[in-house]
């Protein structure tokens, strides 16, 4: 397996995805211990470089690194100061020159993480680049589904909301279809990207058909600025037509589970009743995020990524 960099799930082989998910289990044990620390990454340095505000993803990565005994530093840059690409390239070079082993990058532009790999020897983890991918979010979603369903293959997964702008949706589409799930997406026609059917995804402009008989429902966060951009008439209409409520959830299988990448707009893309209900795995997702990120950091920095395990 080879994950020098973790840029997305599009090009990640199935075996590597499986290995990360397998490794996340033992990692999750560490989080539940009294002493939440193993010495594994002692002496390694992880830098979180965030060009977009994000508390939870950043916290999740930093805790993952700390639980593995890596040193962490954070660099937050307001997106408004991202004027030129040199900023990113200079940052990549500077951070690597200070001896950082892993750069965790969050950036508002698609392809930023890949661009960074061309200018640094450090390993790069994409913590979300524009509308492109957010691989660790999809991995934690898949890990959460596995915990609940013990399988991914054959499941019907419905993803609802702003598919066009969602890197979470893209990474999940790659990961879930690679592991054999059937992915159905639904959103307003102004928020559906072109050509998704060619990836084997079923695309709907109303949520009901996507929800029918689903095993897993993933509600995406609606960026509130989309209304200002004219992509939807109003939040009220969006909630009425696309919001995940108890009535719509009733269309799914009886044991269907609900995911949301957070942070939620309760009452917009998901009702409080569903978000806090018995089918919701949203809190598990947060814990699992740390475990999955520990697994990724571990697999990237330990051993030779090009050789398979010989036990």
């Amino acid at each position: 397996m080879s994950i020098k960099h973790l840029l997305g799930l599009e090009h990640l082989p199935v075996e590597t995805i499986t290995k990360i998910l397998d490794t996340a289990g033992p990692m999750k044990q560490i989080i539940s211990r009294d002493l939440k620390k193993v010495p594994t990454l002692r002496g390694k340095a992880v830098a979180t470089v965030f060009y977009e505000p994000s508390t939870r993803t950043r916290l999740s990565f930093e805790l993952a690194a700390k639980y593995l005994s890596a040193d962490t530093v954070g660099l937050a840059t307001a997106s408004s100061s991202v004027v030129k690409g040199e900023t990113l390239i200079d940052t990549a070079r500077t951070v690597a020159a200070m001896g950082v082993d892993v750069i965790v990058l969050r950036h508002p532009m698609s392809g930023a993480a890949e661009l960074m790999t061309r200018y640094t020897d450090a390993y790069v983890v994409n913590a979300g680049d524009g509308m492109h991918e957010h691989p660790t979010q999809a991995l934690l979603d898949m890990f959460t589904i596995l915990e609940s369903k013990n399988r991914i293959s054959g499941l019907k997964v419905a993803i609802l909301g702003d598919i066009l702008h969602s890197r979470v949706a893209r990474s999940n589409i790659w990961g879930l279809t690679k592991l054999g799930a059937e992915v159905h997406v639904a959103g307003p026609p102004t928020m559906l990207p072109a050509g998704l059917e060619q990836l084997g995804v079923r695309v709907y402009d109303r949520p009901e058909a996507a929800l029918e008989g689903a095993d897993v429902v993933m509600a995406l966060r609606l960026q509130l600025e989309r209304q200002r951009q004219g992509l939807i008439p109003s939040l009220r209409e969006y909630a009425r037509l696309y919001g995940l409520n108890a009535e719509r959830l009733a269309l799914t299988k009886d044991d269907a589970v609900v995911l949301h990448p957070g942070p939620m707009n309760r009452g917009v893309e998901i009702t409080a009743e569903v978000a806090d209900g018995s089918r919701s795995l949203i809190t598990d997702q947060v814990t699992n995020g740390v475990a999955v990120r520990m697994a990724c950091l571990y697999l990237m920095t330990v051993g030779d990524a090009s050789r398979e395990d010989i036990d």
């Binding site: 392809g111 509308m131 072109a194 050509g195």
Partner: peptide, 13 residues
């Protein structure tokens, strides 16, 4: 250009 490649890359079409 709008299309599958733009959708996959997450670039505005």
């Amino acid at each position: 250009s709008e299309g599958l490649t733009a959708s996959v890359l997450g670039l505005k079409g």
